[in-house]
């Protein structure tokens, strides 16, 4: 039954997301590199065009993992687990990107690569939780138990996502608050910079969708091989 729905190749949507994302990536980089310098930070502010989309997609990916982990626990269909796995993996990559670009950005602006302030601490915890997610998956052999245990981490670990996102608002931190504030809808950014940021966000989202679909397919093929 399941076998019929899993094809050997990525479907049209996967190709479209990936193709479009990779095609627009250079354009996004061009926009980022041609965006005007910031009045305070000069050209350093351009790291934002990687840092912000990376962090957003990381949060989004972990949310998708949370949702599909819940779905898996209640429906017991391995397909949900594969999406959760794929999303967590891609999310970890994006979150890693956000952490690395953040550190590169912090050194010249704040003066340090790392400091234990609320946003950075909560993000580090978040990162550790999802690294744990994969350590766990690697350690359990029984596929059903592996999926259940992973789903539990995907659900319990998600609590750190809103905490991390809101930490700059709730607690006085060194990290600046959101420039595009989802809770109030305020935007603290010049239009030409906002354009470049939103365009990169779109590119990252396309790449995320494409990679998650591709990764879930690979996971499905692996599972089929394991069961065959």
């Amino acid at each position: 039954m399941l076998k019929a729905t899993v094809s050997d190749r990525p479907d049209l949507f996967t190709w479209a997301f990936l193709g479009l994302g990779l095609l627009l990536l250079p354009l996004g980089l061009y926009l980022a590199l041609s965006a005007p310098p910031d009045v305070n930070q000069g050209y350093l502010a351009r790291i934002m065009y990687l840092h912000v989309p990376g962090a957003w997609l990381g949060y989004l990916a972990f949310f998708v993992t949370f949702l599909y982990s819940l779905l898996y626990l209640f429906r017991q269909d391995p397909r949900y687990d594969r999406v959760a796995l794929a999303s967590a993996e891609i999310g970890l990559v994006f979150m890693g990107l956000a952490l690395v670009t953040g550190m590169l950005w912090a050194r010249p602006t704040w003066g340090v690569y790392w400091t234990w302030e609320p946003r950075l601490t909560t993000t580090a915890i978040l990162f550790a939780v999802y690294v744990g997610y994969f350590l766990l998956r690697g350690a359990i052999e029984d596929p059903e138990l592996r999926r259940k245990a992973a789903a539990a981490v995907g659900i319990l670990g998600f609590i750190n996502v809103p905490i991390s996102y809101m930490s700059v608002k709730w607690w006085r931190s060194l990290h600046q608050t959101q420039s595009i504030d989802l809770t109030t809808g305020k935007i603290h950014m010049a239009p030409e910079m906002l354009q470049a940021l939103l365009f990169n966000l779109l590119v990252f989202t396309l790449l995320y969708l494409g990679f998650v679909r591709l990764r879930a397919l690979v996971a499905a093929l692996e599972a089929r091989k394991e069961e065959a």
């Binding site: 915890i125 550790a128 939780v129 690294v131 744990g132 350590l135 766990l136 350690a139 245990a149 981490v153 319990l156 670990g157």
Partner: peptide, 8 residues
């Protein structure tokens, strides 16, 4: 392994 990251 599982526990520590969650209970940090």
């Amino acid at each position: 392994l599982l526990l520590f990251s969650l209970v940090v």
